[in-house]
Amino acid sequence: MLNYGILSTASICARYIAGVRESKNGFVYGIASRNLENAKQFAKKHNIEHYYGSYSECIEDENIDIIYIPTMNAIHYRWAKYALECHKHVIVEKPFVLLKEQAIELFELSKKNHCFLMEAQKSVFLPTTLKLKELLDTKIIGDIKYINLSAGFPGRFPEGHWMTDHASGGGALYGSCTYTVEFLSFLFDEPSYQYDAHFIKGKGSADDVVHFTLLFNDIIVSSVISMCCALKNEAIFYGTKGYIVVKNFWKSNGLDVHIDGNMTHFDFPYTSEFVYENNHIQECIEKGLTESPVMNKEKTIYAVKIVEDLYKQM
């Protein structure tokens, strides 16, 4: 059994904990907050025995095997590096880090210290995504020519929240660009992209809406992410014979194939969307791997570079 330590009491943590508990070989050992009372209350609510009033205390606990980092984006690098220096396996929420050089350094450190390191990217492990890749590979809808992906999260972050501050790693692009980029990188076997973007800033210093385009393999991709608009939250793959719709593509439990006016639905229900990536993480660690063969360092480093480059345009 692998013991997890979680650095944060953010809203995503409860869902991630459910995925660990449903997984084959994971146990939620402890929860950390920068405020001891917050950690204590979260631990009590979610039936976690150990809690810590600092991230470092959690990392340094010799009983913990894996550190999961869903903190404010700007401090992912700091705590991932410290955890690796303490010889812990590390899972870092997206965006992995804010700079390409930071990502390269962390993967080099994980290899040096023989620790597993992966960006948390649940979308590429979902049964729906695996079925989608199978359908695209068999060209059930012909040759793909255009892909549209949209994701909107209106009202989630109030004024003054760190997600409205660019320096803290906030903004629509930092928040969700990697879902688009790494989702497609998995489906199309790590293509090389041409890319461009347009931004609308919100009340803070961060971007509220971003529209970016990708071009690869004669396929045009249009992706819109918004923290203020109620978008459709779906990915649509348009081919020469039909199209495929995947609702909530980053956590989807099904997809629809449309050909010649007929629709075929594929259903993949789950209890927790996080269980699949955690089963994969545990299998990798049991094999002694320092990186995932699926969500590998190349996908992560390339995604970090793309986000970094696009922000330079803003």
Rank of each mutant, 00 (worst) to 15 (best):
C86K: 13
A39P: 01
G30W: 09
N63H: 12
D65C: 10
T178A: 14
Q313V: 03
I285Q: 06
E85I: 09
H280R: 11
R15H: 11
V209D: 12
D65P: 05
F199I: 03
A14G: 03
T71W: 11
D207K: 00
R21D: 01
E159V: 12
S205T: 15
T213D: 10
E298T: 04
S168Y: 03
A39Y: 11
I141R: 12
S54D: 08
N278W: 14
E190V: 02
F42M: 08
L214H: 01
G175Y: 13
A167R: 02
M263C: 15
I219K: 04
Y68Q: 09
E101P: 01
L106E: 06
K88Y: 00
V246W: 02
F42V: 13
L255I: 07
A230W: 01
S8A: 15
N296C: 06
G142F: 10
M263F: 02
S252Q: 05
S223G: 00
D256K: 03
S292P: 00
I285R: 02
V304E: 05
G239Y: 12
V209G: 07
S176W: 10
N262T: 10
F249I: 09
E283V: 08
Y179V: 04
I104W: 00
S176T: 04
E22Q: 08
E101W: 05
L130T: 10
S11D: 14
E105N: 12
D165E: 14
D260N: 09
L130V: 10
D165F: 13
T128F: 13
Y238L: 12
D61R: 03
N233T: 12
E234H: 12
Q121E: 15
I59Q: 01
T213N: 15
E291G: 09
L126Y: 09
A80H: 02
L117M: 13
E85A: 10
H211K: 10
L136Q: 03
H114F: 08
L109Q: 01
L289F: 07
A74L: 00
C177A: 15
C86T: 02
N38C: 06
S272A: 03
G169M: 04
S23Y: 10
T9N: 12
K111P: 07
I104T: 05
M227E: 07
Y52M: 08
G242N: 02
D189Y: 08
R21Q: 04
K24F: 03
S222D: 13
D165G: 02
M163W: 04
G155D: 07
V304K: 07
I285V: 07
A10L: 06
K305G: 04
K131R: 09
L2N: 11
D196W: 15
L117I: 02
I306N: 00
S54A: 13
V97H: 06
V307A: 04
V181D: 13
S185M: 08
K297L: 09
F186D: 01
Y270A: 11
L109M: 11
V92S: 04
V20K: 03
I31V: 13
I64G: 05
S223Y: 04
D208Y: 13
Y82Q: 02
I244N: 01
D137R: 11
I48W: 05
L310M: 10
R34M: 14
Y52E: 06
T9Y: 14
K94L: 15
S33W: 00
P127A: 14
A151N: 05
L310C: 13
Y29N: 05
